[in-house]
Amino acid sequence: MFLGTYSPKLDDKGRLIVPAKFRDAFADGLVMTKSQEHALAVYPQADFLNKMSNLASAPNTLRQVRSYQRMVMAAASDDRLDSQGRVTIPPHLRAYAGLERDVVVIGAGDRAEIWDAETWNRYAEEQESDFSDMDGEFTAFTGT
C-alpha cells in the first residue's frame, strides 16, 4: 500500500527520485499514466496489467468505458527504476500534469500519484474544507 507525501524535485532530464518507501513495489517495473485532476498515477507493472485486464472485461459498447480505456492506455508508459531509484517521466505526461521542477509524490492506496507541487497544495487546501464531512460517508460505504 502506498502511503505518505514526499517532495522530490525533477532534474533537467525529467527524472524523479522515487521515494525509498515505494521502490520495492516498483522493483519489477512500473506503469505511469494520466489520472484525474491532472495528476499522474504510478502503478506496479503487475497491478496495472491486472487493473487493465479487469477494465477490458467492461462492456466497450459504453462510450464512457471506451473513453476511459483510451485515455489511460494511450498515455501509459512502462519503465523501470534506474540504479539510483529514479524514473524518467515522459514529456507528454510532464506536460499533462504541468510538471516543472517542484513536484509532490503521494501515496494513494494502490498507486502513487505525482502532482505539480502548486497544483497539489491548491487541491489539498480545497479538499480540506470537505474532509471532515467525508468520514461519515466513507464509514457508511466501507462498513467500518
Rank of each mutant, 00 (worst) to 15 (best):
M1R: 10
G4L: 02
Y6S: 05
S7R: 14
D12M: 14
K13Q: 14
R15S: 00
R15I: 12
A20C: 07
R23M: 06
A25Y: 05
D28I: 03
V31N: 08
T33W: 01
K34H: 08
H38D: 02
L40D: 01
A41R: 07
A46Q: 10
D47Q: 12
F48T: 11
F48A: 05
F48W: 15
F48R: 03
N50Q: 11
K51N: 07
K51H: 14
K51A: 12
M52D: 07
M52I: 09
L55N: 04
A56S: 13
A56E: 14
P59V: 03
P59F: 04
P59W: 10
N60D: 04
N60M: 14
T61L: 08
T61Q: 15
R63H: 12
R63W: 12
V65A: 09
S67H: 06
Y68V: 04
M71V: 15
V72C: 03
A74D: 07
A74F: 11
A75W: 03
A76M: 07
D78C: 06
R80N: 13
L81V: 11
L81Q: 03
D82F: 11
D82V: 05
D82H: 11
Q84P: 07
R86V: 02
V87W: 02
T88H: 07
I89Y: 02
L93A: 00
L93T: 05
A97I: 06
G98Q: 07
L99M: 13
E100T: 14
R101A: 09
V104A: 07
V105C: 02
V105S: 06
G107Q: 06
G109P: 01
E113D: 01
E113R: 08
E113T: 05
I114E: 03
W115A: 03
D116W: 05
E118S: 14
E118L: 15
N121M: 02
Y123V: 09
Y123L: 13
A124L: 08
S132E: 13
S132H: 14
D133C: 05
D133Y: 02
M134L: 15
F141V: 00
F141M: 13
T142K: 10
T142A: 12
